[in-house]
Design a protein around this nucleic acid. Structure first.
Lengths: 218, 218
DNA sequence: ACCTGAACACCGTTCAAGT
DNA sequence: ACCTGAACACCGTTCAAGT
């Protein structure tokens, strides 16, 4: 097998132009290990083998680097949801539920990334357009599944965005409560069951046959 | 009117034993103004008129002071929910919805406190028992309303804690998404409408007549 | 008992200087 | 063009010393 044609020893490959990617990679590792709050720009730089001032050539400040990692997280989460829907069979309602489960599953298995993506570590997310766009796509994925349910007549009519908001809220709320340790046993299969109950509840609320259906006391 | 009987000028009243309360008050003010992330123990101390080492006589560390402020937040939020339920008339379902609305309203009008209460500013909430207890009471308030709906036959049977989890998740999710600026126009009345839709959706999901009710495509 | 002041080991960020 | 090293203005926390 031929050696890489690029000059220089592989050890110091960063200096040739992929420092940004290396910094994002190191930051993601450290965040996964110790949470976004503990992340230090100086340690990221050290890990990447550069001085603590070097990152500023490629990122405006610490928030910009965190935003890049958060964006990566949103893309991964969206992919997980798309995959889950695809693997859930033909019933649109099953696919919808699978998408929501994937949302919760992502949060539970990557709590540090989830906190980074939604928490205050990146102070103004709208200041990072590609981050905002990747977040929008995650929501969009959920919305698409609702729209498919509507087309199949399984969910009542209306703007899919409006209907997706309760669904997003409930999976996001459960995920947040688990990640913030307000709820949940830590047991993975118990969490799965929780998520299943939660999504089922909101699905009932969105199902067809709208309007007054409240039961009267006997 | 008689002067305060305590010796010394009111300006330096802290030194008599209410420094802890003064620190919590100053911290709450600063958090409300600039968010929990921006809070500095040194500035709290300065604001309270003591040296930056003085707080350590009363709080183990920064997290302990933040925990005290968060606890205050949970008590206030619980009170808001109780008041909302009380002001909502006799229908248990209306009272339940009012409680959920109060939850969202608290978050929207005290975003910094909400972030403090649920976010990572207090790293290990379980390490502060009275904080954990105040959080439990907030959840409990929501649960009580569900139980009342069950008693009235308006919500299906089962462990109230299980049924409250979807409700908690959905209001917490909406509140979090708004506070983290992933959703919402910033308009207060639009937010109110959002919250009303959300709570209605989950109420439909929890209503009586359980089991298979999914509509088939025509 | 409660508070102060100096000190320590960190931060993020900037900037002249090197190659 | 890209990186380094020193420097600045901060942090949280500790601890001897004061009253």
């Amino acid at each position: 097998m031929a050696r890489s044609p690029s000059r220089g020893r592989p050890k110091r490959a960063y200096h040739h132009g992929n420092l940004p990617a290396a910094l994002v990679g190191c930051a993601a590792e450290l965040i996964g290990a110790h949470g976004p709050e503990a992340l230090t720009l100086r340690e990221v730089a050290k890990r990447a083998g550069v001085s603590h001032a070097a990152p500023y050539r490629h990122f405006k400040d610490k928030a910009a680097l965190l935003a890049a990692v958060a964006e990566e997280g949103f893309r991964e989460m969206t992919q997980d949801m798309v995959d889950a829907a695809g693997g859930a069979g033909p019933d649109p309602m099953d696919r919808f539920q699978a998408t929501g489960l994937a949302y919760v599953r992502f949060a539970v298995s990557h709590p540090a990334h989830f906190r980074l993506m939604f928490g205050p570590a990146v102070p103004d997310k709208l200041a990072h357009p590609s981050l905002a766009e990747s977040a929008r796509q995650a929501f969009s994925t959920l919305m698409d599944q609702i729209a498919a349910c509507q087309t199949a007549g399984l969910v009542r009519g209306g703007d899919p965005a409006d209907l997706a908001l309760p669904a997003w809220s409930i999976v996001h709320g459960l995920a947040s409560l688990i990640v913030d340790r307000q709820v949940g046993s830590g047991d993975a299969s118990a969490t799965e069951e929780l998520a299943r109950t939660i999504t089922a509840a909101v699905m009932l609320g969105l199902a067809t046959e709208p309007g007054r259906r409240r039961a009267q006391p006997s």
